[in-house]
Design a binder for these strands. Structure first.
Lengths: 225, 225
DNA sequence: CTTCCACGATAAGGATTCTCATGCGTACTC
DNA sequence: GAGTACGCATGAGAATCCTTATCGTGGAAG
């Protein structure tokens, strides 16, 4: 699988190249937008990773150039934390996914694999919803009935999992593996505690409870009444 | 690559099978020692993952049976946190690596890959040392001049990295990627803070400092005088 | 030699997350 | 129906880790 990286910061670029090479990808690295676009048009890649902020022409323009040429490989955008609008714009222009800097390499790898598996079709959704609860994946923000709710990172990860598999009863083992990178320790109740904290933030004070306990099975997020 | 798992707890066994299958390994799962040994002897595996506590014959006996038959594939042991002696025994019997339950799946995967890459030769060391500092990888314990030092997990990971590459100057970017799963955020000083905490525990109060700052480069652990 | 600046050290504070202890409710047994 | 065991809920406390702010120091430039 061939991947094109367009990234001007040498530290990041080299790290990505090295990390992806170790994961058995063939990687080309371009240091600016022009080089990147040129490579993208003359070579055949299965995926492109574009930084938004680039010297010369920026990531959007590279993306536009790629799409105009008719190339359809999936594109993953790298954006700075604050430039939310950039992210929206990138998705509108035809990016398939985005990643906010700073990010964990494992996160990048996971997304790269996902994009390659499904060939770039079916973009990442931007929102997850259930009843009046809304989770904004891009902005990493959560609201219920329009009211902003602040979630810590574990809380967010847990809610994201519950929402992605809304209606399914998720056993603890699954939750542990997804949110905690797996932990077979039975003598801990981190999950209960985390659920408790999450409930306090998204269910307490609301009539309609969204998180339900299924005794002996696990937890579901459901908007049934 | 074919992997044999011998694990009686269904939760763990299934999870391992699934996770390793997703990582493109061919996996067989045995629920007890006898089945496991039988499979190990009749089929050809590139690696075996053995739980110590098993119904019927235990993990050591399976290992002994494997070795007696002349099979040399690498063996990774899974042990409970408390049974330290078990771990030592396992290594003496010819295991190549061990993992303490509970563990992160990513950790397991990393070790599996390492073992497969080097074909099981060259066992994991049990200790890392520098001057009078000793890090016990199995017990996850650290002593200096024989005095026990309690380290938090990040501190331990950092010290382990420094010790594994003792004498090398490690740039921040490397440390960040290894200990923090990479983080390109420049406006944080987590590393300095972590180094500080680590120094407080292993260098403060000792004449011979082990952690040295190399201005503009990074940090080294060295026992030079 | 002095000044300035970048880099690192350090302290303090806060946020997050885990552990532990305990309470409650449900389901099962007798 | 009473007793009991188990699973989950909850609260309190602590450990760990990160952020921010400030200070110090070494090295380069003038």
């Amino acid at each position: 699988m061939r991947i094109l990286i367009v990234e001007d910061e040498p530290k990041i670029g080299n790290y990505l190249r090295q990390g992806l090479a170790e994961a058995c990808f063939v990687v080309d690295l371009a240091r600016d937008g022009l080089d990147g676009l040129h490579l993208a048009l003359t070579e055949a890649y299965d995926l492109a990773i574009l930084d938004v902020m680039l010297p010369g022409i920026d990531g959007w323009q590279v993306l536009q150039g790629i799409r105009r040429s008719g190339k359809e490989m999936p594109v993953l955008f790298l954006t700075a934390r604050d430039d939310v609008d950039d992210r929206v714009k990138g998705l509108e222009l035809g990016a398939d996914d985005y990643l906010v800097k700073p990010f964990a390499f494992s996160e990048l790898l996971a997304r790269v694999r996902t994009l390659l598996r499904r060939g770039g079709m079916a973009k990442e959704p931007e929102f997850l919803r259930a009843a009046d609860l809304e989770l904004d994946l891009m902005r990493r923000r959560v609201t219920r009935s329009g009211k902003k709710i602040n979630l810590a990172s574990k809380e967010f990860a847990l809610l994201e999992l519950l929402l992605r598999r809304r209606g399914e009863v998720l056993p603890r083992s699954l939750i542990a593996s997804q949110v905690w990178d797996m932990n077979f320790d039975s003598d801990t109740n981190v999950i209960e505690v985390a659920i408790r904290r999450l409930r306090a933030k998204i269910d307490d004070g609301f009539d309609q409870k969204l998180i339900h306990t299924v005794r002996g099975m696990g937890y579901v997020l459901e908007a049934t009444e």
